[in-house]
């Protein structure tokens, strides 16, 4: 009797549990699916709101047409460039600096380590930062996308903690054989810390790809706009977008039912912004978890 009650209780619990998680997962994914099917469906049907759950009249011309819009290809290029350059610089610098901080004989090691870590908890504020960037001539300058993000205290902590967990004998034996710091770093340490560097690379790449605050504050030159910023403008400036579309379609004869609309352009650009994240995401899922766990140990 009691057992039966427990079982039905448990069944109800499981049912609610599965229902809730299914629902929340659908809510997380549905918007992306909706955007995607609308970008590959017949634009005329899409704009009349007929595409809700399944794609109809599949075509890819949205993706081809959208890159012809003035400035969009350049913005994509800027985004890719800042992501690649920024990530490589961040990973290499974090690895090297983290390694240097594991060397106890460094002059003023504790002081300089704290000098970097403190910046995690304190900043001067966004307007003083803007004024500094202005004084350094970093407004409308591509370097402003990369240099400020190179040293992040959190990454330094990750690398330092990771290297300290490696048996010191490995480095010592190389040092006794006369290897300098740089050789020890490139030959011994670097190959051993690839897991943590992969984690930092993913974090850094996602951050670079998504970052928009620097464009908002520092860039007035449209040649330096990133994809994120262009998308934001498209979402807000319907009339400007409409004229851009008209210009980009001048002279090209395409199927009338697949003419680009403001909505189709917005959706397509959104998808272009999402795709890279979706591609690296499943592959690196493990990295994220590992990274935050090491970070959590240090706190």
């Amino acid at each position: 009797m009691r057992r039966a009650k427990n079982n039905s209780d448990s069944l109800l619990f499981n049912l609610c549990n599965y229902a809730f998680f299914t629902l929340f997962t659908v809510i997380c994914i549905l918007p992306f699916y909706y955007l995607f099917i609308n970008t590959i469906s017949n634009n005329d049907m899409s704009s009349r709101g007929l595409i809700t759950f399944l794609p109809k009249g599949i075509h890819l011309s949205n993706y081809i047409q959208v890159l012809k819009i003035k400035g969009l290809a350049l913005a994509a290029w800027i985004s890719v460039a800042r992501t690649l350059l920024g990530t490589v610089l961040t990973v290499v610098s974090s690895a090297f600096l983290g390694f240097l901080f594991t060397k106890k004989e460094m002059w003023g090691r504790t002081f300089w380590y704290r000098f970097i870590i403190i910046t995690m908890y304190f900043n001067a504020g966004i307007i003083p930062w803007y004024i500094t960037m202005m004084n350094l001539k970093l407004t409308n300058n591509f370097l402003a996308y990369i240099l400020p993000l190179v040293i992040s205290p959190f990454n330094i902590i990750l690398v330092k903690t990771f290297i300290e967990a490696i048996p010191p004998a490995l480095q010592e034996s190389a040092e006794i054989d006369g290897a300098g710091y740089f050789t020890v770093f490139t030959r011994i340490v670097f190959p051993l810390i690839t897991p943590i560097m992969a984690t930092i690379a993913v974090f850094s790449a996602v951050n670079q790809w998504n970052y928009i605050v620097d464009t908002i504050f520092l860039m007035t030159d449209s040649k330096l706009y990133t994809l994120q910023f262009v998308l934001f403008r498209y979402l807000n400036e319907a009339t400007a977008l409409a004229s851009l579309i008209r210009n980009s379609q001048g002279g090209i004869t395409i199927d009338v039912s697949n003419m680009q609309t403001a909505t189709s352009v917005r959706m397509t650009v959104s998808m272009i912004v999402v795709f890279p994240i979706m591609f690296v995401y499943p592959y690196f899922q493990r990295c994220f978890v590992k990274g935050i766990m090491i970070g959590a140990v240090k706190g």
């Binding site: 997962t25 997380c28 994914i29 928009i212 998308l231 912004v273 994240i277």
Partner: peptide, 22 residues
Amino acid sequence: VQVLTTIPNFISWVLVFSVAFN
């Protein structure tokens, strides 16, 4: 569930706004 519900964390707020908009 774990993999799919983590995705929105890795998109930018601009994109969240685009989702909201659409």
